[in-house]
Simulated scan of single mutants.
Amino acid sequence: MITISLCMIVKNEKDVIGRCLSCVKDIVDEIIIVDTGSTDNTKEIAKNFTDKIYDFKWIDNFSSARNFSFSKATKDYILWLDADDIILEADKKKFKNLKQNFDPSVDIVMMKYNVGFDDNGKLTLSYFRERLSKRIKDYKWREPVHEYLEISGKITNSDICITHKKEHPVVPRRNLSIYKKIISKGNTLSVRGLYYYARELYYNGIYNDAIEYFNKFLDTNLGWVEDNISACLNLSICYLNIDNKKNSLTSLLKSFEYDTPRAEICCQLGYYYFNDNEYKKAIFWYKLATQLEKPRDGWGFVSHDAWSYTPNIQLCVCYDKIGDIEKSIEYNNRAAEYKPNDPAVIYNKKYFEGLKSNLKYKKATL
């Protein structure tokens, strides 16, 4: 059976680090904690699980800290987690089974990262990350922020999920600040850096600058296909926020240059036409979103509602707008299959019941 080193970088994680280490302690054989400047009792809590705790001076570079943590590993494979990650019980069982029956020819194991949830705890956003890596391959982390492990060799996808359970918001503009420091020093952003810097600008509502950098990224023609498609979606929303509808539409259509339509893009096209009161055009795109097959093994971001609930609830509204109540009811029922307790679904059901009651009343008074 293989052995596993857990490598983590942390800072002021007293509220979550115990939870994280408790759920993984029976899976791994070594726990390495690299602290980048905690002022709370993060390290004291970590001492209940390991004596391999190291200090690392923070230099605005996540990859440097992660590479330092990896350098301390001694086991066959390295697992990385963030302090606000957990492994649910079902996934712990899968992980233990993977460990016991592991194929040592595998260099990298990809695991799904579940990061977004609705108010009822239903998964809304996930993507694959490189979680388990063969130590002797000496893989390196790249990029100062939004870092990634530069991997090669035999790579396999696993059905094990890591769940992100954030308790506190990220330090405001932390990542944006790091990127701005890099640029202010005259350094050139990598292709990936252009994309993620644009995303940070977008998330912070700096739409004109985000548009500039999304376009710089796309103009390189060197981006990963999934990032290209995501950039087109975010670029479209940026244009909408500055009331540039023409370029918003163009950005969405550009995504088709890179691959077959994605439900996220189709839903945004539906939204575009819905807001223009062009309901039949909106229906076309929302319907297409319901007919697409959701990616299973791709490593890109997957907004699960776009492949299920969102197009159906929007089709309910669109058909109501054009007076086709039967179709409207049909799609509300389909939306209910995904989120039966959603306020919109419940409201629509009451709305349709009201319509039926009024219809019966009118017939009775004729």
Score class of each variant (00 low, 15 high):
residue 79 L to I: 08
residue 204 N to M: 03
residue 201 L to E: 04
residue 123 L to G: 01
residue 83 A to T: 05
residue 191 V to P: 01
residue 172 P to E: 02
residue 283 I to D: 07
residue 330 E to T: 11
residue 204 N to A: 03
residue 173 R to F: 08
residue 99 K to F: 10
residue 123 L to C: 00
residue 326 E to K: 13
residue 339 K to V: 02
residue 53 I to N: 03
residue 216 K to A: 10
residue 77 Y to G: 04
residue 207 Y to H: 08
residue 263 A to S: 14
residue 40 D to P: 05
residue 247 N to V: 03
residue 59 I to F: 05
residue 71 S to M: 06
residue 197 Y to C: 01
residue 25 K to L: 02
residue 283 I to Q: 08
residue 311 P to G: 07
residue 363 K to T: 06
residue 114 N to F: 01
residue 169 P to S: 07
residue 99 K to M: 10
residue 212 E to K: 15
residue 196 Y to G: 07
residue 52 K to H: 12
residue 229 I to C: 06
residue 81 L to A: 10
residue 115 V to K: 12
residue 39 T to H: 07
residue 4 I to F: 09
residue 314 Q to I: 09
residue 62 F to D: 15
residue 138 D to M: 11
residue 61 N to V: 00
residue 198 A to R: 04
residue 129 R to F: 09
residue 60 D to E: 10
residue 142 R to A: 14
residue 321 K to Y: 08
residue 18 G to D: 07
residue 171 V to P: 05
residue 118 D to W: 09
residue 79 L to Y: 08
residue 319 Y to P: 11
residue 39 T to Y: 11
residue 19 R to I: 15
residue 262 R to V: 06
residue 99 K to G: 08
residue 213 Y to L: 08
residue 48 N to H: 14
residue 97 N to F: 13
residue 260 T to W: 13
residue 360 K to T: 12
residue 240 L to G: 15
residue 297 D to E: 14
residue 325 I to A: 10
residue 285 W to F: 15
residue 193 G to E: 06
residue 250 T to E: 15
